[in-house]
Design a binder for these strands. Structure first.
Lengths: 247, 247
DNA sequence: ATGATAGGAATCGTATATCATTTCATACAT
DNA sequence: ATGTATGAAATGATATACGATTCCTATCAT
């Protein structure tokens, strides 16, 4: 077989149709936003990213455009792209939206949850309780997503499921450790998780589950807002203190 | 001033920064999907669209990518783009999602509605009642959007507002006249609109408004599903009978 | 010293060109 | 006649090239 193309990897070549350069760029940038390599405000220079990935700017532009549509990246004409900023208002609306769609997803997923799913969720929640003793916000936040994933992943509505995942993606874009972890909130969160599980277990009405899940997320938001208001020290206009570096 | 660029229009040139070719392509394709020129299943051939607009394929690709992220267009690697199909399941999930986000938007918009807004909504609903006498589904559907727009546009959460608009965009993508208009449903719809307005007027609890608005949309969905099930004649796998023409 | 202005570097925007892939039609063998 | 192979045409994918815009900086006048 001729191999004039500079393939991404030889391993994937054999089984998969070698994901396109656009997809390569998309995944690369998205994951680097997720893991914090590119923090909010980071300037995404097309040429530089293209060079790093060994491709031209065209597929990178496409990738950026897709990320823009997902809200992970902002774009200004003739100026360029940067990782979406998360000012307090953005955080608030994102959490509100997530509370809405995740609440619904959780409720409509509940009837499809098996006993195994519930047990798994309980195990994760137990581990969350454990992390509280060691004060490990990063682990806690990751487990939190795991827990809720078990609860909403059976939702039959793909659109809503997609919105839930996008919401989590946006939140993950900020450095989990430094931010969005309100000390006093964690224990209450674990307790509410338990309450949610009990509701699901006894086959509660969908609306009851939905409102409980929604309330759970909004409580986290409220805790954050209260926490933020209590220390107006630095958090005046940006939640993140990411530095804008120069190329 | 030198004008080497082939500007879009001379009028906009003086005040606006002459929207980019990508935006031009985006709007053009989107509006043609909305007005039904490009019906579901229509193949969006990049080269042809580019030629029609007098631009190259690169900005067209970007536009398609953005539309894809919004769900108006589907895309397959090395095959191309087409206007998103709307099979019954897609319609169901879209309506469900819209019921969720629109319900919330309506409830959170309610406190900001003025007496003028309510009067305006009532006028529109009156006109909807009128259309019923002439049987004009197209006008009815348009008025329906107008009515709900008045109800949800004051929502303070831009994300959710955006989701609502996208939901309506998707629904509009199908030819309104032939589809999604269930004869027996219209009168009930007008009545429920009136009920919604009364709820808002008396300053009902947000949750009550939300559930009423949600129920209103789901009732339309149920009416459609029942209507569809009643005549399994042709609606087996596609709601639209758009023909795939050849270039 | 301060402000304005001109020039240049960086970066974006888009056209053109070329390669790769898919698809369809035709021809051939069974 | 049916199925399969082959090749050509259409289209998508991406690199390269160049023009346009923005932003920064150095210079100059006040």
């Amino acid at each position: 077989m001729a191999s004039t193309v500079v393939a991404n990897t030889v391993i994937t070549n054999t089984v998969m149709p070698t994901l396109s350069k656009s997809q390569l760029a998309y995944r690369s940038v998205k994951s680097r936003i997720s893991d914090g390599t590119f923090s909010p405000g980071y300037r995404l220079v097309l040429g530089r990213i293209a060079a790093e990935l060994g491709v031209s700017v065209v597929p990178v532009r496409e990738a950026i455009r897709m990320l823009e549509a997902e809200g992970l990246v902002t774009f200004e004409r003739n100026v360029g792209a940067q990782v979406a900023m998360l000012d307090p208002d953005e955080y608030r609306t994102t959490m509100q939206t997530l509370s809405l769609v995740e609440g619904y997803a959780t409720a409509s997923s509940a009837p499809f949850m098996t006993a195994g799913d519930i047990a798994r969720a309980r195990t994760i929640n137990g581990r969350m309780a454990d992390t509280l003793k060691h004060f490990d916000p990063v682990a806690f936040t990751r487990l939190n997503l795991d827990f809720h994933s078990v609860l909403f992943e059976h939702c039959q509505n793909e659109h809503i499921l997609d919105l839930v995942r996008r919401g989590w993606d946006r939140l993950r874009a900020l450095r989990e450790s430094t931010f969005s972890f309100v000390p006093g909130r964690a224990q209450g969160s674990v307790d509410e998780h338990d309450g949610l599980l009990r509701l699901i277990e006894r086959g509660a009405e969908p609306l009851e589950i939905e409102l409980a899940a929604r309330g759970h997320r909004l409580a986290t938001l409220d805790a954050f807002l209260a926490h933020e208001a209590a220390r107006p020290s630095r958090g005046d206009h940006h939640l993140t203190t990411s530095i804008q570096e120069k190329p």
